[in-house]
Computed example of a mutant assay.
Amino acid sequence: MAKLAAEGKFSGVVLLSHRGRTVLSRSYGMADREKGLPHHEGTAFSLSSAGKPFGAVAVLQLAQQGRLKLSDTVGTHLRGFAGDIAERVTVHHLLSGTSGLNTPDEDVHRVFRSREEVREYYEQWVRQSVPVAPPGTPTGHSGAEVGIPALIVEAVSGTSYWDYVQENILGRCGMTGPAFPTRPQWLTDPHIAHPYMTLADGSQVDAVRHLDKDSPDPDVLGKNPGRAFIDAPGDGGFATAPDLVRFARALGDGTLLDRPWAELLTGAKIPHSASSFGAYGMPVRIVNGQWVFGRGGGNPGVSASWNVYPYTGWVGVVLGNCDGLPLQEITGQEMQAITGASPGGGSGG
Rank of each mutant, 00 (worst) to 15 (best):
P233N: 09
A6L: 12
V284T: 14
R115W: 01
A86P: 05
H191T: 15
I286L: 15
G297K: 02
E145C: 12
P310E: 04
I148N: 01
M175L: 07
G254H: 09
G36T: 08
E329D: 14
Y164K: 02
L325D: 00
G324I: 09
G202I: 10
G174K: 07
Y122R: 09
G143H: 11
R259Q: 15
G297P: 08
T255Q: 08
G36D: 06
T331H: 05
N224L: 12
P271E: 02
R183P: 02
G320K: 02
V208H: 10
F81A: 04
N102T: 13
P271I: 07
R19F: 02
D206C: 09
N299I: 00
N321A: 06
I152D: 01
P233Q: 11
V287Q: 07
S25P: 00
V153T: 12
S160R: 11
P135G: 08
V23G: 00
G344Y: 08
L95Y: 06
D201Y: 10
P242G: 07
D235E: 13
R295D: 03
Q290K: 06
N168F: 09
S99D: 03
A341T: 05
E167W: 00
L16F: 14
F54C: 09
G42E: 13
S273A: 11
G140R: 08
L60P: 06
V220T: 13
D217K: 08
G143P: 03
D243Y: 01
W125R: 05
G346N: 07
L95H: 03
A133E: 04
R33K: 14
A337M: 13
R115K: 12
Y309S: 07
H39A: 09
G36W: 09
G234Y: 02
R110K: 15
P131H: 06
L256V: 10
L4D: 03
I338R: 05
S273G: 11
V245S: 02
E34R: 13
T312M: 01
V111M: 07
G55E: 07
K35Q: 15
S49Y: 02
T312D: 12
P216K: 08
S129A: 15
A86K: 02
R172W: 00
T90I: 05
L15D: 03
S17N: 12
S203R: 14
S347C: 14
M197W: 03
A248F: 04
